[in-house]
Design a binder for these strands. Sequence first.
RNA 1: CGGGGCGUAGCGCAGUCUGGUAGCGCACACGGUUCGGGACCGUGGGGUCGGAGGUUCAAAUCCUCUCGCCCCGACCA
Length: 432
Amino acid sequence: MRFTNMFIPTLRETPSDAEAVSHKLMLRAGYVRQLAAGLYMYLPLGWRVMAKINAILKEEMDAIGAQEISLPVLHPAELWQQTGRWDEIKEEMFRLKDRGGRDMCLGMTHEEVMTYLASREIRSYRQLPQSWYQIQTKLRDEARPKSGILRTREFIMKDSYSFDADEAGLDKSYELHAKAYHRIFQRCGLEFYQVQSDPGMMGGKGAHEFMAPSPAGEDEAVLCVSCGYAANVELAGSISPGERFKAEPHDIHAAKTGDGCPKCGAALKIERCIEIGNIFKLGTKYSLPMKAFYLTEDGSERPLIMGSYGIGPARIAAAAIEQSHDGDGMIWPASIAPFDAEIIPLNIKDENTAKTAEALYNALNEAGIETLMDDRDERAGVKFKDADLIGIPKQVIIGERNLKEGLVEVKDRRTKEALKVKPDEVLKAFKS
RNA sequence: CGGGGCGUAGCGCAGUCUGGUAGCGCACACGGUUCGGGACCGUGGGGUCGGAGGUUCAAAUCCUCUCGCCCCGACCA
């Protein structure tokens, strides 16, 4: 892609209402713009990152046998009334009436609709297990949207739901998802923890959250470096030093750094985190009220045993920026960067520069390396600043000075190390 | 929803206390000089000062109401 054909409105100054690093940089680098509180517009660069993340999500979901489907955002109230959540949930749910006066709501999550589908279509144990997922819009009328893209009223979520014949099946589906989530976050280049969490209103009997450490996060994880115990502070029952091994499981209170680990007694560490994913064992919380039953081998009727699993791709993007940036801008992990490489011809009006850039651009694209070429007629400084801001991992700098010796520069955005190579060696330099 | 802050050009801000009819930097357009880390000079376009009502000869400025955005907290499926 050529810079002049792509809308990349970079800003020299940070809009004053941005606080979180990821928010500031996404605005400055021209990845997103705000429409209203908690509502964001993704611009070409931002949307490319989302597409990269979603592609990874799909690959890993497909790899565990989950199947992609798509459900409506607009839901009839009846489904939510059946599970009781129509009344349990308050202002956080967007509600409306259709022209016939029927109560409707905008989906904040899809347990109801998924269970409805399963209840009508799954008849027999022979059809189990099933895992269905979608990457789709959720709406929540948040009391306080914040930190840019981190907490919004409308957001995209990868949500999957598993249907099993029994608890053992659920355990398996749950494990599969947990492992897939590990691979996803690893592939996205994030530092993260899997921690125990409170199942909360989702109901059910077990839950974990995936937490990306970052000061911009809203959650706190309690971690034991000694035995590996990890939990959300909301859940972590801890004991104070000197009272070892006397943790009261029901005594749930906020743990503090230095408290004793409930498992091994060692000193706990607390870290601020962004919740990037969660997994829940739902059991029959939705299948019972919605009558989602199947027939067993001996002909008896049993409720489906369910799990639900969510990932917020925008939070992955924000967490990646929070965890990987410097004073000049973003530093994308290669896997989710909007482009693999950026060609920077310093003086586009120089014939040799332009020719070399053009040839390299074609060669890289042909080699399957997604390349952005800054073909703007701008000064070198502007291009350098924008390139660093935008954060594409590899930069290929083409300047008249080096070109006289038949060389171009391959620079790593993260380390800032630059290698001078011949144009036809650029590909090789990427691999090293 | 409680507490705090802020709304003046696309972005960052000054002007508000002490009313006199809107300004600076960046960005943008044009011309020239520049050209490896956000150039310089000149010219130019762009603003119902968030909105409504009120006070006044006169309101960005004072008063009332209202809308919006951000931060802290509560909440968070």
